[in-house]
Each structure stands twice: as structure tokens, then as C-alpha cells.
Nucleic acid binder design. Structure first.
Lengths: 220, 220
DNA sequence: TCAAAAGTGTTCAGGGTACACCCATGG
DNA sequence: CCATGGGTGTACCCTGAACACTTTTGA
């Protein structure tokens, strides 16, 4: 029973790659580090895994601290365990990614945390191995887009087909054909046409749709 | 600088899901646990991450302990961090999968470790959350098969097309059409036909092929 | 009246799938 | 001589990609 005691213990952290769509571009939420090492450098929002806390719970807690949001979709991206990845101490980190509807944000908490949205193509220098984490999360996201309904996480309940298309385009980083997109999306997902019109995006106005969930289950 | 000290430290482990092909079936290498908790239960080969050891290095070390092999292809599958996943203590585990050529094994080490190959369809009851780990590794493997040349990891340098096909069939769990398979595999990979014949599998004998690596790079 | 986004079908090519017979050899 | 696995090509279908014009309305 003393078997475990012979072994080393490690600090274990979680880092969150928080994605959101803004003005047709994929953004990541970054913070300015307030502590050493790496003070004033841009970094992912992170935290430590505490005594009686699962990895998933730690990730949710960290996300909540930054955004005030609960019940956000999060997926584990991978564990990062190089010995010197954190210059301050040996910390093993498990990365998570979260997908956020850009409009549901708590501006107070954002400024409290020195947080800022940054487009993925304009990523600044990041703290230590965070670039690799972002890279892996991006790969994961791009992969998921074709397989699972993650895109809807970026949107409110009601959305236009053009908004939906621009989510795909932002994530994949390429323009899509409008007619092919609509055909495919309508046969892949059960989208319900409402009789509401969104006039913010165009003069003519676009029909708002709602995703009907299959079999009353949650999405993703 | 005492910032880190306020936080908990955890035991961090690695668990290896070791795949191999045997008699046309996908097998996993399991061991009988020799220590409590879970003594005499089947489990994945695992170990702890030590003080100055990266996650990847720990996984390689554990694999080497069991098989005697170096330079085996390993990929991280994910981190498992439920609080009570290990009934003996709070251990966060990072799972890796490895692909092994079944014939390159060290029988001495295998018996020393009470290790045994088990077909994935006949998996016995496994220690704690190891079933979930195996499940995730299997999903990962099936996904990789269609995308990357992982299949060749299961085979020696020279192989017949029938052997290659049976690797695919074992991993995907379904029969494939011989002609379609050969057509696709020949246009996907650069396979060099040798003038050697393997007569172990049939009376007529089958041509042995070798994979020509693209641009002198390593595979996978 | 014009600029700007919404909305709507058809055609074509390429890839994937289905399918059956002869060959070589050891027992 | 026959059972066993090795080796080979074609026809069809369906999915994915290319492509252009009309509608609505606010400025």
C-alpha cells in the first residue's frame, strides 16, 4: 500500500483554448499573464488541478472564472508533459478546447482578467508551449467540424444560413459554395425554418433557422 | 514564486494500449496486476511519471519494460483524470497506444510480466477505467487507419498484399473486397514489388512487397 | 436606382463499390 | 486432381464540385 509513495508527484494544470467567432473570423480568447514567469506575455487561460478535482472539472472551473459561463462544451485536446515546458516549475498540463457564442460574454470578467479576443491568423507570441497547444486544438476543431455538430456551439439558438456558412468558412479557412453548402447542411442536420427574419445582416433580411435535435438528445 | 506551492501535486501515470496483429485478429497486450489494488485483475501495462521525465519518455520506458523494444511508434490517446479512477490513490493517467509487429517480441519479458495477448473482441474484465481507455485507443486507431500509414507498423519490412489487407480487416472489423483494396492501396502508397515469394500463407506463394518511403522521411 | 446579401437547380466528373474467373502449387 | 489462397479489370452509381441569375429593400 506504500506502493504509490515511492513515486513523484507533479503539479497538473489545465489550459483552455477558447474559440469564438467574431466578424467572420475565428478568434481565441487570450489573457495577459499577471504572474511570473512570463508576466505580461500573452497566454491561454489556465489553472491548477486541485486535490479532489477531476481534470474535466478543473477545466470547467477555469473557463468559468474567465467567462462566467457554465455548461459550455469542452473537449480534451491532449496532455503536454515536456519537463521544462513551464519555466517556473515542472507542470504537466492537460489542454481543453471550448467553443463559445461570441455574444454571451461577461465583459466585466473579461477586463478583470485582462482577456482579449484575437483572430487565429494574428496570434501574438504566446507563453511557452502554448503555440503547440493552440495548434493541436485548431487541428482538432477542424477535424470535428466535418464530423460532429460543433459549429452550432458558436451560434445562438436562432441563426441564418449565411451565419452558419461563415462559421464553417472561418474554421476551415476557405470560402464555400453557397448552394452546395445549403444543400449539404440541410440534408445533414434537421434545421427548422422559422418565420422570423433577421435584418441585421442585409437589407432584404434572412430567414432564421433553429436546429432540431435528433431524438431529444443534446448535441455534440 | 511561491505561486506554485499553493497547489496540489498529483501522481501521474501512463497506461499503454499495445496493439498487435495475430492470426488475422487485432490483439491487445494485457498484464495480470501483481499489486493491490486490483491484484490478479487484467490491466493495461502502466507506470508512474517520475521527477524529471516527460510523459512521452515515461510511456516509452513502460513499453520498454514490458517488451524490450525501443523506437516503437506511440501516440498519446488522452488523459484520464476522474478523482476515483484508481481506487488506491488519486492518480491522473495519460494513455498512449503503441503498434507492434507481433513477431518482434521478447517472450522472456512477457512471461516475467505475466503479459498476454488478448483479441479485442474477447477482452476480459479490466481494472477500473481501463475499458474506457481501450475504447478510446481503438477509436483512435480506427480513425488513423484511413488517414496515415499506421498499418505498416504491424508488419515486417516485407509483406504480402494479403497480409496487408488482413491488417486493415482486423482493425476495421470488416471484410474488404480484394480487388478494390489492392487498387486503392497501390495508388495510396508507393509499394515496391520484390522478386521474393512468401510461401507460408499459401501453396502457390504470394509476392512480397516493401513500402518505399516518400522523400526519405520516416513513416507515420 | 443601385448596391448588397438572400435564395434557388442542374450538370458533370471522379471515386467508390459491386462483381467472377483463371492461376499456381502442395498434399 | 483438387482444395486453397493469389492475382487481375470493368460497369455502374452516387457523391462532391462547378456554376448564374432573380429577389428584396434600405440608403
Amino acid at each position: 500500500m506504500n506502493y504509490y509513495k515511492e513515486h513523484a508527484r507533479h503539479y497538473v494544470g489545465v489550459d483552455c483554448v477558447i474559440f469564438g467567432l467574431h466578424e467572420g473570423r475565428l478568434n481565441i480568447l487570450l489573457i495577459k499573464r499577471r504572474m511570473m514567469p512570463g508576466r505580461d506575455q500573452w497566454s491561454l487561460m489556465g489553472g491548477f488541478v486541485e486535490e479532489a478535482e477531476s481534470l474535466d472539472a478543473a477545466a470547467k472551473r477555469v473557463l468559468h472564472q474567465l467567462t462566467g459561463l457554465e455548461d459550455v462544451y469542452m473537449e480534451q485536446v491532449g496532455a503536454f508533459g515536456a519537463i521544462d515546458r513551464d519555466p517556473g516549475a515542472r507542470v504537466i498540463s492537460v489542454a481543453y478546447c471550448a467553443l463559445l457564442n461570441f455574444n454571451e460574454q461577461d465583459h466585466q470578467r473579461m477586463t478583470d482578467n485582462d482577456a482579449q479576443w484575437v483572430p487565429v491568423e494574428e496570434m501574438p507570441q504566446l507563453f511557452f508551449d502554448h503555440p503547440a497547444i493552440v495548434e493541436k486544438a485548431l487541428g482538432y476543431l477542424r477535424q470535428q467540424v466535418g464530423r460532429t455538430p460543433v459549429v452550432f456551439r458558436f451560434l445562438p439558438e436562432l441563426f441564418t444560413l449565411s451565419q452558419l456558412q461563415s462559421v464553417y468558412e472561418a474554421i476551415l479557412g476557405e470560402k464555400l459554395d453557397k448552394r452546395n453548402f445549403r444543400k449539404r447542411i440541410m440534408e445533414t442536420y434537421d434545421l427548422e425554418k422559422t418565420d422570423l427574419i433577421d435584418k441585421t445582416g442585409s437589407k432584404r433580411g434572412a430567414t432564421l433557422y433553429r436546429r432540431r435535435l435528433p431524438g431529444g438528445q443534446s448535441s455534440c
